[in-house]
Every structure is written in structure tokens, then in C-alpha cells.
């Protein structure tokens, strides 16, 4: 089955950020296709490489980056949600005159249309959030 995953909650604050990761990983292991993982609301905070969790805790951001590298995942951070919350890539830094970037490996910033298109193209949209 072809799936698009929507992640609506931030890392460490809310278990749905973890659940989305475990679900995506399990779906891939079962042979399903992940068309896209879309990060929305506070979910965009899963995509900052500046996260530094304690050493004995899981690294949620790196975990996504590694999964993306292994399976060539398309992980999209919503641009409007990202701008509000300070998730920045090179293009956004340039456009908005910011002096830094923080997007993690494997993530890209794009529009909400990517979520809607993902829902159209996939057999299922699976939403993780409150």
C-alpha cells in the first residue's frame, strides 16, 4: 500500500512524534511504500538539526534523518508552519533575511500543496496528532 504520513506534533512534547516514526518504519519493513512524510503544526520541529537531547534519550530528529537516508524518503516540512516556528533552510534564510539555517538532513521545506497532493496520490493518509 502507498501511504502518506502526516506528523502534527513536536518531538519530546508529544508521543505522536514517536508513534509516527515507529509506524513509518514498521510500514516500510512490511513492504509498504511511503509516498511522503509531511510535518505540520508543531510537527515541523521534528526537522531541526539543532536538537540536543540528553545522551541516554532517543534522538528523534536523527532517527528520521537516518530512516530517510536508508529508504530515500521524501520528508517535507510545511513552509507556513516552519516560518512561524523558525525552521529554516538555505532558501528560506535568503528569502526572509535570516542569519542561520537549522533544517536537518533528509528534510525539505515546501508548501501545503505537498500534503494535499500526497493524500491524492496515496492509498491512505495516516495522521499522527492530538
Amino acid at each position: 500500500m502507498k501511504l502518506t504520513i502526516q506528523v502534527n506534533e513536536g518531538p519530546y512534547q508529544h508521543q505522536s512524534a514517536d508513534s509516527a516514526y515507529f509506524f513509518t518504519k514498521a510500514a516500510l519493513e512490511k513492504g509498504h511504500k511511503i509516498y511522503r512524510v509531511f510535518f505540520y503544526h508543531d510537527g515541523v520541529n521534528n526537522g531541526t538539526r539543532l536538537t540536543t537531547p540528553p545522551q541516554d534519550d532517543r534522538n528523534i530528529v536523527n532517527r528520521w534523518s537516518e530512516l530517510a537516508k536508508e529508504h530515500d524518503l521524501d520528508m517535507v516540512v510545511c513552509v507556513a508552519a516552519a516560518q512561524r516556528r523558525g525552521i529554516v533552510d538555505d532558501g528560506e534564510a535568503q528569502r526572509n533575511g535570516k542569519d542561520a539555517t537549522n533544517i536537518a538532513d533528509g528534510f525539505r521545506i515546501s508548501g501545503l500543496g505537498q500534503l494535499v497532493e500526497g493524500a491524492i496520490q496515496s492509498d491512505r493518509l495516516v495522521v499522527f496528532g492530538d
Binding site: N8, Y40, H41, G111, L112, G113, L115, V116, D130
Partner: peptide, 16 residues
Amino acid sequence: IYAWEALEVILIGAAF
């Protein structure tokens, strides 16, 4: 912010 950001998806989604 859920309601407002939901409305943003709805408005963008209308183009599809």
C-alpha cells in the same frame, strides 16, 4: 493553532 492551520490546508487544498 490547530483550527487556523487547518483552515490554511482547506484553502490551499481547494485548488486541487
